[in-house]
Design a protein around this nucleic acid. Structure first.
Lengths: 103, 103
DNA sequence: TCTATAATTAGCTAAATGACTAAATGATGT
DNA sequence: ACATCATTTAGTCATTTAGCTAATTATAGA
């Protein structure tokens, strides 16, 4: 959970995720959308992968990154539920105060 | 937005927020719930305040911290909307793809 | 096999983070 | 005025972060 929030705390990484919303894309194509050096972007991809927010698979010499929406959803809605935020609260089975949901 | 996510990326700060869910509390009482030194906790409070997630007001010699749920809500739901996550998406007036919601 | 391309790893720097102790500030009560 | 209590500020340290360039790995194609 910390990893997910840490990952999306960076605006560059949020933009990467948003780009991936429209479908999988190679590391090179992704990097081309930014002014940073490619190794810098590669490091950002690694952080996103570490947080399990994206999936990578090789296709020839390219590496294709794909958004894992479900992980983002789980983290955000899970957190939101603890704080009883939004109508989303009721839309998911909730542990309520049963034990003290792990943060 | 970055500040909010950066703030909640730390488990100690998430726990502070969760404690404040049940109502305002003084810096000292809050600190007592953790093993860290008080100045360390004070720094965490400062980060939360900087992210506008809590409000502080003095009461005698104590400083009372209070959760600002609405800011948390705006950040999380705003972000979730961009990714069309959860049922919460439809529950808020949305800019859709009108312009490219600022991340 | 050689060359070119895609991406990551290695190694560096500057700045930010999260912890600590000691000192300073501010408010109350004697 | 003084002592005490609550909190923050100052200063230090180790670690992490985010950027860079140069070097490496891995694949494809000639």
């Amino acid at each position: 959970m910390s990893k997910v929030f840490r990952a999306i705390a960076d605006p560059t990484r949020r933009r990467v995720l948003e780009i991936l919303r429209s479908g999988p894309m190679s590391a090179g194509e992704l990097s081309a959308q930014f002014e940073f050096a490619k190794p810098t972007m590669s490091a950002h991809f690694a952080v996103l992968k570490e947080a399990d927010l994206v999936e990578a698979h090789k296709d020839g010499k390219q590496v294709i990154y794909q958004l894992k929406l479900s992980v983002l959803e789980d983290a955000l809605l899970g957190f939101a539920r603890v704080f009883q935020l939004g109508q989303a609260v009721g839309s998911q089975p909730s542990n309520e105060d049963e034990e003290e949901t792990r943060l």
